[in-house]
């Protein structure tokens, strides 16, 4: 079966110079990532700020080459797909509708640009396609003549979505598409994305910090920490039972609108990871509330079971348990 997106053992480093001392370090923003997304699915990527989500998105869109590893989109290696073709396959929606739209172009021209640069549709058909798409996302003919500065934040994000969809791509990469928007506009945009996915059979890679939105829209979730995917599971399973201690901390940090409660301290401590100096063993161990003696020494393997993946020494599958002689256990679970 062909996957919409397939990422095989991908690494991406950035070289860095330090102001204090002359040492050069490398930040490994994506540090050995493997996953795939089936056509029509929505994979949400969540994780700590700076853990490499946007870098991963840029790699998948071919905007940045990987240091090593391979990325396939619609069954074809990205290196074999030229820019024009790539634009037809995969399109981005970024967090910031303010800086991603050219302030000097009218809305209809912004949305028309991808079609114009493909250059295979006659002008009149292009214009029809643009207006059709704008109508689809709820932008009126009158608004199509405006400049981005004359639209509200939500309307600008709709324009960005129309621009992403005008070529009818198979895959849309959304990097925090609603985090700049207020809740009512956010709801409109999420509803629109869900509708378009059903209608057009789209596949989404959906980066978001809003776990309620993730639970709502995603079919699968990948949790990243310091360049690696530490947990990957179907949405319902993950929300029912988060396995990795980082995922658990993430869920415990969600602020429900309850004025009787304060801001929780989830006991991750202040030992924030230094990306130029990855901790030994499990990279999460200096902050992990469940860490034990083995964690600083042993790098956890990917444990896969029942369509889930988790990278933690506490997660033990049946086989390992059997090897250890603790008898057969029905579930893939966290002990201790």
């Amino acid at each position: 079966m062909t996957h919409a997106i397939e990422v095989r053992n991908v690494y991406r480093e950035f070289q860095q110079r330090s102001s204090l001392g002359r040492a050069r370090g490398a930040v490994c923003a994506v540090d050995g990532v493997t996953f795939s997304v089936a056509a029509g699915d929505v994979l949400a990527v969540v994780g700590e700020s700076g853990c490499g989500k946007s870098t991963l998105a840029r790699l998948i869109m071919g905007l940045l080459p990987p240091s090593s590893g391979e990325i396939l989109v619609d069954g074809r290696s990205l290196v074999c797909v030229d820019r024009r073709e790539r634009a037809r396959l995969i399109q981005p929606v970024f967090q910031d509708p303010f800086s991603s739209l050219n302030p000097r172009q009218r809305v209809r021209d912004i949305v028309g640009l991808p079609l114009a640069s493909q250059g295979d549709l006659p002008k009149a058909r292009q214009s029809d396609r643009v207006m059709e798409m704008l109508a689809r996302v709820g932008i009126s003919t009158e608004m199509a003549e405006r400049l981005p500065g004359q639209l509200s934040g939500g309307q600008r994000q709709r324009v960005a979505i129309a621009r992403a969809l005008v070529l009818h791509p198979r895959i849309v990469v959304c990097d925090e598409p609603t985090s700049a928007l207020d809740v009512s506009v956010q709801a409109q945009i999420i509803n629109l994305l869900a509708e378009l996915r059903r209608e057009l059979g789209l596949t989404y890679l959906f980066i978001s910090h809003n776990l309620a939105v993730v639970e709502h829209i995603a079919t699968e979730v990948a949790v990243m920490y310091l360049g690696r995917i530490v947990e990957h599971a179907p949405t319902q399973d993950l929300f029912r039972q988060p396995m990795h201690p980082y995922t658990q901390a993430l869920f415990a940090s969600v602020l429900t609108p309850d004025p009787a409660l304060g801001v929780p301290d989830v006991a991750l401590g202040d030992a924030y990871p230094d990306p130029t100096n990855i901790p030994s063993g499990c990279r999460f161990h200096p902050r992990c509330p469940k860490a034990f003696s083995e964690c600083p020494a042993t790098e956890p393997d990917n444990i896969r079971k029942d369509g889930r993946l988790v990278e933690c020494l506490l997660a033990v599958d049946n086989q390992t348990r059997a090897d250890r002689g603790d008898g057969s256990v029905a579930h893939f679970q966290l002990d201790r």
Partner: peptide
């Protein structure tokens, strides 16, 4: 209306549209 737009984990059903104004 604004308070009704917030997706509440466990209460808002996946797949159903969110409340909006």
């Amino acid at each position: 209306g604004l308070l009704d737009c917030i997706p509440v984990p466990g209460v808002t059903k996946a797949g159903e549209p969110l409340g909006s104004i």
